[in-house]
Computed example of a mutant assay.
Amino acid sequence: MSGPDALGRHDSWEGVRAVVAGFGSAGFASADNLTHLGAGVTALDESAAGREEEAELLEVLGATIRLGAGATATLPDDVDLVVASPGWEDSPLLAAARERGLPVWGEVELAWRLRDPGTPWLCVTGARDPGRAVLMLAAVLRAAGRRTVPAGAAGLPLVEAVMDPEPYDALAIGLTAAQLRGSGAMAAASAAVLDVGAEPGLGRVYEQVEQACVYQLADPATEDLVREADVVEGARAIGITLGVPGVGMLGVVEDLLVDRAFIADRGSSAAELCSVEDLPDLTPEVVQDALVAAALARAHGVDQVAVRDGLRAFTTRA
Results as ranks from 00 to 15, higher is better:
Ala229Tyr: 06
Gly234Ile: 03
Ser190Gln: 09
Arg227Pro: 10
Glu166Lys: 15
Ala218Cys: 02
Thr125His: 11
Gly203Asp: 01
Val149Pro: 01
Leu171Val: 05
Glu207Cys: 05
Val149Ala: 15
Gly131Ala: 15
Asp230Pro: 00
Glu199Met: 15
Pro220Thr: 09
Ala153Thr: 01
Val108Met: 12
Thr119Gly: 09
Ala178Phe: 13
Met163Tyr: 04
Leu158Ile: 02
Val140Phe: 13
Glu228Phe: 12
Met186Cys: 14
Ala229Pro: 01
Thr125Tyr: 10
Ala170Glu: 04
Leu141Phe: 13
Val193Phe: 09
Ala153Met: 06
Leu137Phe: 12
Gly145Phe: 08
Asp116Ile: 01
Val226Ala: 14
Val124Asn: 11
Ala172His: 06
Leu137Thr: 02
Tyr206Ser: 07
Arg227Asn: 09
Gly126Phe: 06
Thr222Phe: 02
Asp195Pro: 00
Leu137Val: 04
Ala229Glu: 01
Ala218Gly: 07
Glu210Thr: 14
Glu166Phe: 15
Ala153His: 12
Arg146Asp: 14
Arg204Trp: 08
Met186Gly: 05
Gly197Trp: 12
Val226Pro: 00
Ala143Lys: 12
Leu122Arg: 03
Ala138Phe: 13
Pro157Glu: 07
Asp230Trp: 15
Thr222Glu: 01
Gly145Thr: 07
Leu180Met: 10
Tyr215Gly: 10
Arg227Glu: 11
Ala170Gln: 07
Leu180Cys: 07
Ala127Gln: 08
Pro167Ala: 11
Val214Ser: 06
Pro157Lys: 05
Leu122Trp: 13
Val193Ile: 14
Gly182Gln: 09
Asp164Gln: 09
Arg115Pro: 03
Val108Glu: 03
Gly145Leu: 07
Arg147His: 01
Glu223Ala: 15
Met136Ile: 05
Ala151Trp: 10
Leu175Gly: 00
Asp230Ser: 11
Tyr168Trp: 11
Ser183Met: 07
Thr222Pro: 00
Val209Asn: 09
Cys123Gly: 03
Trp121His: 14
Trp121Tyr: 14
Met163Phe: 07
Gly174Leu: 01
Met163Lys: 00
Pro157Asp: 10
Arg142Ile: 00
Pro117Tyr: 08
Ile173Ala: 05
Ala185Trp: 03
Trp121Leu: 14
Asp164Lys: 01
Met186His: 11
Leu122Lys: 06
Ala111Lys: 04
Glu107Gln: 10
Leu110Glu: 03
Arg128Lys: 15
Ala187Glu: 09
Trp121Gly: 02
Val226Ile: 06
Gln216Asp: 15
Trp121Ser: 06
Gly174Trp: 02
Val232Lys: 14
Asp169Met: 03
Glu228Leu: 15
Gly106Ala: 01
Val232His: 11
Thr148Ala: 05
Thr222Ser: 01
